[in-house]
């Protein structure tokens, strides 16, 4: 009987050790749209859409599109960072910002497609290039 209890406790102890470490975190609420203050003075973000493109295997590829309207001639740098279900970054082709020039009153539309169907969320960052 003692032996049985000892073995049971040992198994329970080992099961406890084998549990998966906590991988999710809710420390930070990640904003989908992050606009630097310098950009707000010169342009407005008018639209932000997301779409899921159907893939043959039943997966869906995330695509985002945003529109900005310039109040004066200005330059913009933007980048989309992609995240999987666990909140980990999914790497695309490059890490650099894309640059665009806007004329006064002009509305421009930009879009970006996720690098992999694992992507479930994103963060769009708009900033003013130096």
């Amino acid at each position: 009987m003692k032996m049985f209890i000892l073995v049971s406790m040992l198994i329970l102890g080992l099961t406890g050790c084998a549990s998966q470490p906590e991988t999710s975190s809710s420390l930070i609420d990640r904003e989908e749209l992050k606009v630097d203050p310098e950009v707000i003075y010169t342009m407005d973000v008018k639209e932000l859409f997301e779409k899921r493109l159907e893939q043959p295997g039943g997966e869906r590829l995330l695509q985002v599109q945003f529109a900005v309207e310039a109040r004066s001639d200005t330059e913009l740098a933007w980048k989309v960072t992609w995240f999987d279900e666990s909140g980990m970054v999914v790497r695309g082709v490059g890490e650099g910002y894309k640059k665009a020039t806007l004329l006064t009153g002009q509305t421009r539309y930009f879009s970006s497609t996720a690098p992999n169907a694992r992507v479930t969320s994103y963060q769009l960052h708009l900033r003013e290039p130096k």
């Binding site: 493109l53 590829l61 695509q63 695309g92 082709v93 879009s111 970006s112 497609t113 996720a114 690098p115």
Partner: peptide, 8 residues
């Protein structure tokens, strides 16, 4: 690459 993926 983005255009290849988006176009299917």
């Amino acid at each position: 690459v983005e255009d290849m993926l988006a176009s299917g």
